[in-house]
Design a protein around this nucleic acid. Structure first.
Lengths: 148, 148
DNA sequence: CTCAGTGCAAAGGATTTGCATGCCG
DNA sequence: CGGCATGCAAATCCTTTGCACTGAG
């Protein structure tokens, strides 16, 4: 699994004309371990020896190479996760209070409905559809129990 | 229509303990006229006499009062539109190139599927669902014709 | 050797905030 | 009058950038 992931990442980076440096390897590893979208602060916390600017720069490189996806929620911090090409299509549960983002997968049937309906909806507006994104916004368990 | 909108906005502001000042009236009017989500820069362009800080502040007040919805796309600027309570439930077409946001309505049937599926999906994760948001990301007509 | 990658510090830039003044209720 | 609203300018703070150094190929 991990070996396979490494190979895919290496291939994508190479295709984009970049190296698979140890910092980048670490970033991918942190994201893989996290299993859910995390912020750059979190990355820096778990890998204190990484320079902030390098993390920002490398995540940008990895994003451009299609290895990583940047998630902007409206929370102060952007979140990052492995791109769907390396995982699988999914959506996000976003806590409006603490900003945490976690993954959800729609029932296949619903997803199919969307895939069937969205392209023509976009086309009707002269839009070339690239992808869609569905977020469920609410309050996570921790925030509802801790209350206010 | 407009009179009705005014009344609703006034009521919501009052309920939140705020005044329906002329600046706020103008903001609502700009958003109504726009008919699609716009950025603060656009507001300032069309109403140069409004102070930037007041626009930011008032949009925050209007958002808290449930009159306005802030849309964060990942583009540099946030977009604003009238809240769904004053319009109707809809989603967004986002141009990945120029950042423009426009409204779309899903076929009722698809929307129903979502409404049926999402709550339990969220509940299964200990999440209290507030609302969902579906964005179609692609390239708008202007950007595809102008190309690159 | 060459050039991408790294780290530190400084710059950027949308948004927020402090504070004095204006104005509605 | 009292307190919210407004404007100007300054401060915030996540993110980006400049620049000199390091290291892989």
């Amino acid at each position: 699994m991990t070996a396979d992931l490494d190979a895919q990442v290496a291939a994508r980076l190479q295709a984009a004309g970049h190296r698979f440096s140890s910092s980048r390897r670490e970033l991918v590893e942190v994201l893989r371990q996290a299993g859910q979208p995390i912020r750059i602060v979190d990355v820096l916390d778990s890998r204190p020896h990484l320079a902030q600017s390098s993390v920002y720069r490398n995540l940008a490189v990895l994003e451009a190479a299609g290895v990583v996806r940047r998630i902007v929620t409206g929370d102060d911090y952007a979140h990052f996760e492995l791109a769907e090409a390396l995982t699988e299509h999914h959506h996000h549960l976003i806590c409006a209070q603490c900003g945490t983002v976690s993954d959800v997968t729609l029932p296949a049937e619903v997803e199919h409905r969307l895939d069937a309906a969205l392209p023509e909806l976009a086309a009707a507006r002269g839009f070339v559809l690239d992808h869609h994104r569905l977020d469920l916004i609410g309050r996570c368990e921790r925030c509802t129990t801790t209350d206010r």
